[in-house]
Nucleic acid binder design. Structure first.
Length: 292
DNA sequence: GCGACAG
DNA sequence: ATCTTGTCGC
């Protein structure tokens, strides 16, 4: 499913006929969620088949011409050859919107909702803590996992490479990073994972920390710089009369799996007091040597 | 026009 | 997160 995203974006754009245009948002809607408009643009910016996939036919929602890897003048020229003019900042063309689509993001949403039902918000056992992070260059991803004991002494460092299967799309981050997490966490037991991202503080109560905690069948806590769901009341974050996480300074904390709200706060505070321990280490490790 | 926007 | 092909709301 995840691995279909880039290809589905390209397959949708390929359907736009010569002489017509579509918009980033409409392609995103055909993918299954308009929030992906920017992700569509990101995918097109690394379009591997520029002739076959006519990404010059995709423009802004208000018909401004938008960006182009080979320069906006080239985009304008390609459209001109197809009879589409671009005057005072807007293209003049019929908008194609009759996409045939597999709605991959809709299916991914359904999977998140199903997984959210499996999240366990009671305390589970662990004797190690891990921090996981990923860095990117184009489609190229490097993941890092740092495992420490309770005294924050490093026990093990693991890194790995992968080709990312989808662009970054808000609220679907877990799908993008799960493959590397599964690869790096293989064979580990008794680890509580800190994840760069949210846990249940997510529109479908299934952020990346939930997906990874469920995948490893382990405790996991989400640490994020912003909030995807809920309202802040003092130091707590609520959604529909239920607490879903915490705000401590400029950091949002939410359980991912097998931890209570209280434990996720206590452990995260301990960690943030130590410069974020394994998460900082994983972050550093993921960023260096991004080429294998 | 500027900030949001998990990363 | 990267190094810039978005959209919306204020």
């Amino acid at each position: 499913m995840v691995e279909e995203v880039y290809e589905e974006i390209y397959s949708l754009v390929r359907q736009i006929p010569e002489g017509m245009v579509s918009t980033y948002k409409r392609v995103a809607e055909a993918l299954g969620d308009p929030i992906a408009a920017r992700g569509v643009a990101e995918a097109l910016s690394i379009n591997p088949r520029p002739i076959d996939v006519p990404c010059h036919r995709v423009v802004h929602e208000d018909l401004r011409i938008g960006g182009f890897r080979f320069g906006v003048e080239e985009k304008k020229s390609l459209l001109g050859k197809e009879g589409v003019s671009a005057e005072n900042g807007a293209v003049r063309a019929e908008i194609f919107d009759d996409f045939k689509s597999g709605m991959v993001l809709k299916r991914m949403q359904a999977q998140q909702m199903e997984m959210s039902g499996n999240v366990d918000l009671s305390d589970g056992d662990f004797d190690l803590i891990g921090g996981f992070d990923v860095s990117y260059r184009d489609r190229f991803a490097k993941g890092a996992l740092c495992v420490m004991n309770r005294r924050l002494e490093v026990i093990e460092l693991r890194t790995g490479y992968a080709l990312s299967s989808m662009p970054y799309i808000p609220t679907y981050l877990g799908f993008r990073e799960l493959p590397l997490f599964e690869k790096l966490s293989e064979g580990l037991e008794g680890v509580l994972y800190f994840i760069d991202g949210n846990g249940i503080m997510h529109p479908r109560l299934c952020g990346s920390a939930c997906m990874m905690g469920l995948s490893a069948d382990s405790p996991a806590i989400g640490i994020a710089k912003s909030r995807l769901l809920g309202t802040v009341e003092g130091e707590a974050v609520f959604y529909e009369d239920r607490q879903i996480g915490w705000k401590r300074g400029n950091t949002f904390i939410s359980p991912g799996n097998r931890v209570t709200l209280q434990t996720s706060l206590d452990l995260a505070e301990g960690l943030l007091g130590h410069g974020a321990g394994p998460l900082r280490m994983a972050h550093r490790l993921a960023r260096i040597n991004r080429q294998p």
